[in-house]
Design a protein around this nucleic acid. Structure first.
Length: 104
DNA sequence: GATCTGACCACCG
DNA sequence: CCGGTGGCCAGAT
């Protein structure tokens, strides 16, 4: 557990239900604008039983970027849809409607 | 300690 | 719009 990871988790925990954010924005919020990759890595190694809503983090296009081969992507999408997030034919969600801005 | 890998993104050209 | 490049973090070999 590093300081970077903790800041990432702390940021993700503040994302309200039914909202999404992208990896780059999380990185920027924790003070590392170019560490989007690090964010993805940290979330991929979340400790079991954590209260971090990792499923609310998607890629820049608003699409799910988790591995398609583990079935994780399908699960993530299902959870998001259960929270009210809608995806278009390309599997992208609207930032206008579901994007989370920490400012308000 | 060099190199590669992975749930990524911004910046050119 | 598409492709290449560099940048960031942490773990594995």
């Amino acid at each position: 557990m590093t300081a970077f990871s903790e800041r990432v988790y702390d940021c993700v925990r503040r994302i309200p239900r039914g909202r999404i954010i992208n990896y780059g924005s999380v990185a920027a919020l924790v003070g590392e604008p170019r560490a989007a990759r690090g964010v993805g890595y940290s979330l991929s190694h979340l400790p079991s039983g954590s209260d971090v809503p990792w499923w609310r983090v998607v890629n820049r296009r608003g699409a799910i970027s988790t591995s398609r081969f583990t079935g994780l992507a399908q699960r993530q999408r299902a959870i998001l849809e259960s929270e009210g997030v809608e995806f278009n034919a390309d599997g992208e969600a609207s930032w206008e409607r579901f994007g989370w801005d920490p400012h308000g």
